[in-house]
C-alpha cells in the first residue's frame, strides 16, 4: 500500500480535497502508524498555531540606534584608514618606481653631482628668500605686518580645512558598503 500519499495528506490536511480527506479517514481506520502520525501532527499543529511571539527586551530600537551610530563611526574610521593606506602606498610606489627609473638611466657620478648641485641650489634659494624678506620687512611699516601674517595663516588654514573635508567626504562614500 502507498503510505507516502496518506502521510502527505495526514501532514498537510489543509491541502486535501474532500475526497482525499475521506480516503485518508478510511485508511486511518486500517493503518495504525498513519493514524498515529495524523493524531500526533494534529497536536503539534495546534501548539504551533497558538504559539506566542517572543518579544525583545524593552528599548530594542534605542539599542539599535546606538549600535548604528557606533557601527557607522567604525565603518567611517575603517574607510578613512583604507584611503590613507592606499594614498601612502601609491606615493611610496611612485617614489620607488621613479627612483629605480632615474638610477637605471643615469651613471653614479652624474647622480652624485646632481645631488650636490640640488643641495647647493636649495641653500642659495633659502638665502635669497631671507634677503628678500628682510628687505621687504625693512620697507614696510610695522602696522601692516600683522594683517599679512593673519592673511597668510588664514590661507594656510583654509587649504588644510579643504584637504581634510575632501578626505572626510571621500571616505563617507564607502561607509554604506561595509
Amino acid at each position: 500500500m502507498n503510505h507516502q500519499m496518506f502521510e502527505e495528506w495526514a501532514l498537510s490536511p489543509e491541502t486535501c480535497s474532500p475526497e482525499e480527506r475521506e480516503a485518508l479517514q478510511q485508511h486511518r481506520q486500517q493503518c495504525e502508524s498513519c493514524d498515529r502520525l495524523a493524531r500526533s501532527w494534529k497536536r503539534i499543529e495546534s501548539v504551533l498555531d497558538t504559539a506566542p511571539f517572543a518579544r525583545p527586551a524593552e528599548g530594542f530600537a534605542q539599542r539599535f540606534q546606538q549600535n548604528l551610530a557606533a557601527r557607522k563611526a567604525a565603518a567611517h574610521k575603517r574607510q578613512a584608514r583604507k584611503f590613507l593606506l592606499i594614498l601612502g602606498i601609491t606615493f611610496a610606489v611612485s617614489i620607488l618606481a621613479g627612483s629605480v627609473y632615474f638610477y637605471s638611466i643615469n651613471p653614479p657620478q652624474f647622480l652624485l653631482t646632481q645631488v650636490f648641485r640640488t643641495a647647493a641650489n636649495l641653500l642659495v634659494t633659502v638665502e635669497n628668500i631671507k634677503i628678500i624678506s628682510s628687505t621687504f620687512l625693512g620697507f614696510t611699516p610695522g602696522a601692516i605686518f600683522l594683517p599679512i601674517l593673519m592673511v597668510s595663516a588664514s590661507a594656510l588654514g583654509g587649504f588644510a580645512l579643504l584637504w581634510f573635508t575632501a578626505i572626510w567626504k571621500f571616505t563617507l562614500h564607502g561607509e554604506k558598503a561595509q
Partner: peptide, 25 residues
Amino acid sequence: GHLVEYYQTGVFNLCYRMLNNRQEA
C-alpha cells in the same frame, strides 16, 4: 528607526525560535 520599532517583534521572534537563546536572538 521607526521601521526597526515596527518590525522588531517579528524579526526577534524568528531569531529566538531559531536560536533558542534570548541574548543570541
